[in-house]
Amino acid sequence: MPTIFKNLTINPISRMRSNPSRTVLSILTGLYLLNPLILIAGELHQHIEVKVVEERVQTNFCNPEKGCSLVKPETLGLPAGQMPIDQLTGTPIYVSEFIIFPDRTAIDSPGFESIAGDMTAGDRVRYRASGHLSYWSSDKHQWSLAPEGVQIRLAGGLDLQPNQDCGQVFCIPITVEGFTIFSRHGVSSASSLIVGEVRSDGSLHTHLDWIVESNLGTPNAPIGAYMVELQLITDSYPEPSDSLWIMFNNGLPLQDFQQAVAGRVLQSNTDTTLADKLFGWAESNYPTLFPHAETSFIALGYYARCYQNGACVGVKDNHIFAVGGEFGANILTLGEFNAFAAQAGL
Rank of each mutant, 00 (worst) to 15 (best):
A221K: 00
S183T: 03
G324T: 04
S241F: 04
A260I: 04
L332F: 10
G156K: 00
Y226P: 06
S268G: 05
E213T: 04
T333C: 11
W136N: 02
S21E: 15
Y303T: 08
G77A: 10
Y303C: 10
M83A: 09
F248R: 02
P147A: 06
P20M: 09
K6C: 11
Y286D: 11
Q46V: 05
P291I: 02
I107Y: 01
D139A: 14
T234C: 05
Y303H: 14
A106M: 03
P84T: 07
L193F: 05
A190E: 08
N250I: 03
L133H: 00
I4W: 13
F327Q: 08
F248K: 00
R22W: 14
F327D: 07
V52E: 01
V24P: 02
D123W: 09
W143N: 01
L334N: 02
L33H: 12
E97Y: 12
P240M: 01
R56F: 00
H319I: 07
A106F: 05
V24L: 14
L254Q: 08
V176W: 06
P240L: 04
G186T: 07
I233P: 01
P162G: 12
D118V: 03
G324M: 04
E239K: 07
T91V: 10
I246S: 01
G167V: 09
H141Q: 15
S296V: 01
L252I: 02
S130T: 14
N11L: 13
G77F: 07
T218P: 03
N318R: 07
G314I: 01
E148L: 10
L33V: 14
G324Y: 03
G251H: 00
K6N: 14
N250G: 03
T9V: 15
L25Q: 15
A341E: 04
G117K: 09
E74T: 09
G90C: 04
F5Y: 15
E229F: 06
A221T: 00
K140F: 11
I320H: 09
W245I: 04
N163D: 15
N220M: 08
P2V: 13
W245E: 11
P173R: 07
P92E: 03
S183C: 01
K66C: 10
S200R: 12
S26G: 11
H207G: 06
N63R: 10
V150H: 01
S14A: 02
H185A: 15
D317T: 05
E294K: 13
G263R: 01
